[in-house]
């Protein structure tokens, strides 16, 4: 069994993925997607220079990396504590669900675990879980934020 965990700030999703991997002796991969869609969202374009918009984009980029660092660290500690080996992957995409679906397709996973609602980057404004559910060709476990 091969499990993919889509990382966001949901610690319950991390716990469930680790528990599932431990129970089934499954391979566990955690994917963190850096959201590169901010420039489109705020309507920034290369023809019209705007210092305020450029500074904001730098700010969001730094925030994305800070979140990646914090989330991955939390997950690694959790997996280590449970004695579950895992692989961490990081990728960048304009739309986070598309990167998750691409990884699902390439990696041959049996199960996807993700938090619901899924809060990664601009997905706070969108419905990532619906998009993933529509196209995922494997089992999907949505983990509620509240226990």
């Amino acid at each position: 069994m091969n499990i993919l965990l889509a990382l966001d700030d949901s610690s319950r999703a991390m716990e469930q993925a680790v528990r599932l991997a431990s129970q089934h002796q499954a391979g566990l991969t955690a994917l963190f997607v850096l959201d590169a869609g901010w420039s489109v969202y705020i309507g920034s374009d290369f023809l019209l220079g705007s210092t305020a918009r450029s500074k904001f984009l730098e700010y969001t980029r730094d925030d994305e990396f800070a979140q990646q660092h914090a989330t991955v660290e939390t997950f690694q500690k959790m997996a280590q504590a449970a004695g579950v080996p895992c692989v961490i992957k990081t990728t960048t995409a304009q739309r986070v669900p598309e990167a998750i679906l691409a990884e699902l397709e390439q990696g041959g996973y049996d199960t996807l675990v993700m938090g619901h609602p899924f809060r990664r980057g601009l997905e706070v404004m969108r419905d990532a879980t619906a998009q993933v559910l529509k196209s995922a060709a494997c089992d999907v476990l949505f983990v509620s934020r509240e226990g």
Partner: peptide, 12 residues
């Protein structure tokens, strides 16, 4: 967007 970095607001 001009204010957010100065006040450390969360991008989301």
């Amino acid at each position: 967007v001009a204010t957010a970095p100065g006040v450390n607001a969360k991008p989301s």
